[in-house]
Write a protein that binds this DNA or RNA. Sequence first.
DNA 1: ATCAATGCAAAGAATTTGCACCGTC
DNA 2: GACGGTGCAAATTCTTTGCATTGAT
Lengths: 138, 138
Amino acid sequence: MRDLKGQRITNQRRLLLDLLHRSEGHLDADELYRLAKEKEARLSLSTVYRTLRLFKELGLIEERHFAEEHHHYEAKGEAEHHHLVCLGCGKVIDFESPLTRKMREDVSKQTGFEILDAEVHMEGYCGRCQMGGEDSSR
Amino acid sequence: MRDLKGQRITNQRRLLLDLLHRSEGHLDADELYRLAKEKEARLSLSTVYRTLRLFKELGLIEERHFAEEHHHYEAKGEAEHHHLVCLGCGKVIDFESPLTRKMREDVSKQTGFEILDAEVHMEGYCGRCQMGGEDSSR
DNA sequence: ATCAATGCAAAGAATTTGCACCGTC
DNA sequence: GACGGTGCAAATTCTTTGCATTGAT
């Protein structure tokens, strides 16, 4: 576990960060809470929220927003990747695209912003859901 | 006002859709409610939520999720554009990029998805906030 | 006249906070 | 040993729902 920049390292924090890393993203606060409770039965949901907020402030995780749902959290440090959500079955696919780097540069030049993060979010129907009348599994 | 595809056209709906169009996006439910109340004092917040849900289902508006904040809604039909949020002062800038079209095609080919919507979200510091120690107006 | 849409109040989620106790530094 | 972190329960905030009434078609 990396250092926590002056913050105390507790079992709860260690556990939560570890789960976020293992999960490959796409955990919401409640899912994380349930996972963590299996290891640490006395853990409280408020600690999960407080810890997520802390991690976000420290830049250890990112908050994602998928249509219709609550916030999802994803550990940082892995390759930049983006999300594609199927409107039929709800599946979330990660993808990468070399074009994002170029788009960042374009936008930065256009606007004078210093860009720290770029996220692409796409929606549509996956191969299976296109066939099944666009609603095969929900 | 366009037709509402079989739904009834009420004053509330007309007013809300009108405000969404005028606002150039970035209204949340409560802001919209307050704006609309000025014209239609008896309007209720539940009607705002119900109406936003309806408009979303009809594809008249899009739901956006900016970091830290609640849902924002934006009328559709204007040119596809994307968002750049300043982490210093919170300003939201719309931009367009020809690269998104290409990225859509790439991803569609890669994954077999039929892609209906693509949204790019970037964050960073605007020119002013880069100078002012990255916190000039908050 | 019919049935969808509304307002109101109450319920339900998701998230935050106050406070006494516990554990890291 | 100090003080930040935690659990618990209560409070807030955001959103949805039940039901009687109103209004569009």
